[in-house]
Design a protein around this nucleic acid. Structure first.
Lengths: 138, 138
DNA sequence: TTGCGTGCAAAGGTTTTGCATGGCA
DNA sequence: TGCCATGCAAAACCTTTGCACGCAA
């Protein structure tokens, strides 16, 4: 059973403060130190992994490192699909009945059970898509 | 314009030999060395990245490292969705009209443009799902 | 001949681990 | 009093980069 340490609480709060912007273990450590709460990097890694296991955070592999995204879903029984914008880095949670159709389609027609806790769709969020269009192709 | 070197050819063949099982740069390097073709690790990384750019391979971030999956799609103009089984590690390519509905749904209703070249759905493939069921819960 | 490709080793990151110490229960 | 958690530093990995040399065009 996990102990309720100050560090554990602090890491969760720091992550929650990021809202929909995922954070690396390093940046969270720096955040906490800047707030006058010195914490060891290894501790942050350990707590983040535990948060990921309990569903309070999503662990997403990004190029060159792992990012952690706060997940506020109360029960998390439903599972949620993540949409990550590769331009601004934001991660949206998506819960949409429409998706259930996709999962059952994949299960029935393609013999594959999607595991939502490990899945991230990557692409462009609306605002970024419009900005890119505005500045023309590059 | 890329040169047609022996290493380039060898890396592509080694990757193709893996079929639907993705490989790390290191394991491909070892494969090639075992076949009597000594190649530098850096070269393998460079070639794999190039193959990913040209669509002959998919680059997927897995926990603790990057894996590369051979992609035999002739034109690759359509883009393909990858289904990765987190139990056996296999990666299937999926092309299904049903998915286009999903993309447009996400675009129209959720203001998000999925980038197929960077997306991987993770879950359990049929055979693995049945094996897990067979051995009971764990 | 030209200049991209290769190999090696070093550098740069991220994440994990060992161990003594500290703090929750 | 037990044990889990923490901090620090070292270790373990993965990936990229600099540079001299080799090889395809």
């Amino acid at each position: 059973m996990p102990y309720a340490t100050k560090q554990r609480q602090a890491v969760l709060e720091a992550l929650a403060r990021r809202g929909d912007r995922p954070a690396s273990a390093r940046s969270l450590t720096e955040d906490l130190r800047a707030k006058g709460f010195p914490v060891g990097l290894a501790t942050v890694y350990r707590q983040l992994d535990r948060l990921a296991e309990t569903g309070q955070a999503h662990k997403v592999a990004a190029g060159g490192g792992t990012l952690y995204q706060y997940c506020a879903h109360p029960a998390a029984e439903e599972g949620c699909l993540l949409l990550r914008c590769h331009r601004c880095g934001r991660v949206e949670h998506l819960e949409c009945v429409r998706l259930h159709g996709l999962y059952s389609h994949l299960a029935e027609e393609h013999d594959f059970q999607v595991d939502l806790s490990q899945t991230v769709l990557t692409g462009l969020c609306g605002p970024c898509a419009r900005e890119e269009a505005g500045y023309g192709e590059r």
